[in-house]
């Protein structure tokens, strides 16, 4: 089994650290940093929005790494990493979408609009939902792991697409905060001073939270397998 008391201790420590950092981050977002000049309080959700997207991005990148590593080594632990990362990525991209919608309501005057970036992020979410569907649809465990690895790599195209779409064809109204801005974003703003500090802090916090959650999910998956094996052993014992 791949977990020990010592590593569980480290995980506990990291979990506590993530919780503290998250509390501080929320304090920074809501109270410490000043409101944005034109958008006021609505803009505060942006720190969580970008932080959660970073979490999703890290998780989906981990799926690619896990996929390549699984196809090379055939070690099931990489498959577990892939599964755990997909599930966390789904959660974080959902947070990204929901926080984006709550911001869009006052700024764009609509919850949702069929903008290229909004559409592509929705499709990105669907691609990873399809990953979960694919796993349930294939019975042979070895083949399931192999196909999941392949699909996890291919599905990353939707993540790349979500990121590049506003750079390739800037007719989206979604603001681009980092890098060159497009022709006419609606609700764009400059990130400077305290906002930069807050954003940076949120990014680190969300990266850590992602790491911790993925770790917990891997541990859970390992425990499930462990219990299954124990059950089989007990059954074998009883039937003897």
């Amino acid at each position: 089994m791949s977990y020990s008391a010592q590593r569980t201790g480290l995980l506990k420590g990291l979990t506590a650290l993530a919780a503290v950092l998250f509390a501080v981050a929320i304090y920074l977002d809501l109270f410490w940093v000043g409101p944005e000049a034109t958008q006021g309080a609505a803009q505060r959700v942006f720190y969580v929005h970008l932080g959660a997207f970073l979490g999703a991005f890290i998780a989906f990148s981990a799926v690619v790494v896990a996929g390549i590593a699984y196809l090379r080594t055939r070690n099931p632990k990489w498959d577990t990493l892939g599964l755990a990362s997909v599930e966390m990525g789904l959660g974080f991209s959902l947070i990204t979408i929901i926080t984006g919608m709550t911001w869009a309501r006052p700024i764009w005057n609509t919850w949702w609009t069929w903008d290229p970036r909004l559409t592509s992020v929705a499709i990105m979410w669907l691609a990873y939902a399809a990953y979960v569907m694919l796993r349930t649809g294939i019975e042979d465990p070895e083949r399931r792991r192999r196909f999941a690895a392949v699909y996890g790599i291919i599905a990353f195209a939707s993540v790349i697409f979500t990121i590049v779409i506003v750079r390739v064809r800037p007719d989206t109204i979604h603001p681009v905060v980092a890098g060159p801005t497009q022709a006419d974003p609606t609700g764009g703003f400059e990130v400077a001073g305290d906002m930069k500090t807050t954003l940076f802090f949120n990014m680190i916090t969300f990266a850590l939270i992602t790491l911790v959650l993925v770790w917990h999910r891997i541990r859970l998956e390992n425990l499930v397998h462990y219990i299954e094996r124990r059950k089989m052993e007990v059954l074998a014992e009883l039937s003897r």
């Binding site: 290229p116 669907l126 399809a130 569907m133 699909y151 599905a155 195209a157 939707s158 790349i160 697409f161």
Partner: peptide, 16 residues
């Protein structure tokens, strides 16, 4: 049912 579910989201960059 599986093919369209797998294919549609991935092929989106091409389609869009």
């Amino acid at each position: 049912a599986m093919l369209p579910i797998l294919l549609m989201p991935v092929v989106l960059p091409v389609l869009i």
